Each structure stands twice: as C-alpha cells, then as structure tokens.
Lab assay of single mutants.
Amino acid sequence: AEKTGIVNVSSSLNVREGASTSSKVIGSLSGNTKVTIVGEEGAFYKIEYKGSHGYVAKEYIKDIKDE
C-alpha cells in the first residue's frame, strides 16, 4: 500500500540513511518534489530514493495520498 506525498520545505529536505536525525544524510530533495512512501518509522517516512530507500522527517511531507 504505497502512498505519495509532496516535500513541503522552502529550500531542501535531507534524505537520511535511517529513521533518525543522527543518521547519515545520503541526499536531499527540493520543495514540491513528489515522493513515494513505502513505510514509516517513528517520526520518519521511508521513501523510494535513487533506486533504493531513504528516510525523511514526516513533518516536512504534505498531501499524503494513497496510490
């Protein structure tokens, strides 16, 4: 049951290796980017990222929809 969301930041949002603010940053997404959410862990969504997965803070994702 995948969902999509939109990155809701003015600059960019860090994509992390794990569901923690201390996890390594593996990339970033600019505002209004559409993401595919494959799961959630605590305050983070697990998303599809560059052929693999990454984690982003839930508070910066809006317009969550079921695909």
Rank of each mutant, 00 (worst) to 15 (best):
A19N: 04
Y55M: 02
G31S: 08
N8P: 03
G39Y: 04
V9A: 12
S30Q: 07
G42V: 04
K46M: 13
S12Q: 15
E48S: 14
E2L: 15
S23T: 12
K62T: 15
H53C: 05
G18W: 11
Y55Q: 00
Y55D: 00
A1P: 15
E40P: 02
K3G: 06
Y49I: 04
E59G: 08
V15L: 04
T33I: 15
G51F: 06
I26K: 04
T36A: 14
K62C: 05
N32K: 09
I64A: 08
I64C: 05
G5K: 01
E41N: 07
S20N: 09
E2C: 06
Y49T: 02
T4Y: 12
A43K: 15
G18C: 06
A57M: 13
L29F: 04
S12F: 11
T33A: 11
I6T: 15
S11Y: 10
S10H: 08
G54K: 03
F44R: 00
K62N: 14
S28Q: 12
I37S: 00
G39R: 05
S12E: 14
N8C: 05
V38L: 13
R16I: 05
T33G: 04
S30V: 13
I37P: 01
S11N: 13
S30C: 06
A19V: 08
T36Y: 15
I26M: 07
L13Q: 03
T36N: 13
A43V: 07
G18E: 14
E17C: 05
V7Q: 02
Y60W: 09
N14Y: 12
Y55K: 00
A1N: 14
A19R: 03
K24W: 06
S28M: 14
A43S: 10
H53M: 08
I64W: 15
I64R: 04
V56M: 03
Y45M: 03
V9R: 03
H53A: 06
S28K: 14
V38S: 06
D63S: 09
V25I: 11
K3C: 05
N14M: 07
T4G: 06
E67Q: 12
S30N: 10
D63T: 14
V56A: 04
E67V: 12
S11V: 13
V9H: 10
G31D: 12
I61R: 01
E40R: 04
V38D: 02
D66S: 15
S11R: 12
S22T: 13
S11E: 11
E59C: 06
I61P: 01
D66M: 14
G31E: 06
V56S: 01
K3P: 04
S23C: 05
G42T: 04
L13P: 04
V25F: 05
T36C: 04
S10V: 12
A1F: 08
V25Q: 05
S10I: 15
I6S: 05
N32I: 04
S12G: 09
I47A: 00
D63A: 07
D63I: 15
E40Q: 11
K50F: 10
I26F: 03
V7H: 02
H53R: 05
N14I: 10
S22N: 15
D63Q: 07
G18N: 12
S12T: 13
E2P: 12
T33Y: 15
E59S: 10
E59Y: 11
G51V: 05
Y55W: 13
S20Y: 14
G42A: 13
I37G: 00
G42H: 08
S10Y: 09
I61G: 01
T21G: 15
I6E: 04
E41P: 02
T4V: 14
K3N: 06
S52Q: 13
D63M: 15
T33L: 06
I64F: 10
S22H: 13
E40C: 05
G39S: 10
G54C: 03
K65F: 10
N14W: 13
T36E: 05
Y60G: 15
G18L: 14
S52L: 15
E17P: 01
A19M: 07
I6H: 04
E67N: 12
S22Y: 12
S23G: 10
K34F: 09
I6P: 01
E59F: 14
V15M: 02
S23N: 04
K58L: 03
L13H: 02
Y49G: 01
T21A: 15
I64L: 06
K46H: 05
I64Q: 11
V25W: 08
I64V: 14
K46W: 06
D63E: 14
K58F: 03
T33F: 05
A19Q: 04
N8T: 11
Y60M: 08
G27E: 02
H53S: 08
S52T: 09
V9T: 12
N14R: 13
G51I: 04
I47F: 02
K62F: 10
D66W: 12
E48D: 07
G54D: 00
V35D: 00
K24Q: 12
S12L: 12
E67I: 12
K50G: 10
H53Q: 11
E48L: 09
E67S: 14
I47E: 00
I6G: 03
I64H: 06
G31V: 14
I47T: 01
T21D: 13
I6W: 14
K24C: 05
N8I: 08
E41I: 07
Y45S: 01
A43H: 13
S28T: 13
S12I: 15
E41V: 07
A57W: 13
A57R: 13
K65N: 13
Y55A: 01
V38A: 06
A57K: 13
N14P: 07
S20Q: 11
S11Q: 10
G27R: 02
N32C: 06
R16S: 10
I47V: 08
K58E: 02
H53V: 06
N32W: 08
K46A: 07
K34R: 07
S12H: 15
G31L: 08
T4F: 15
A57V: 10
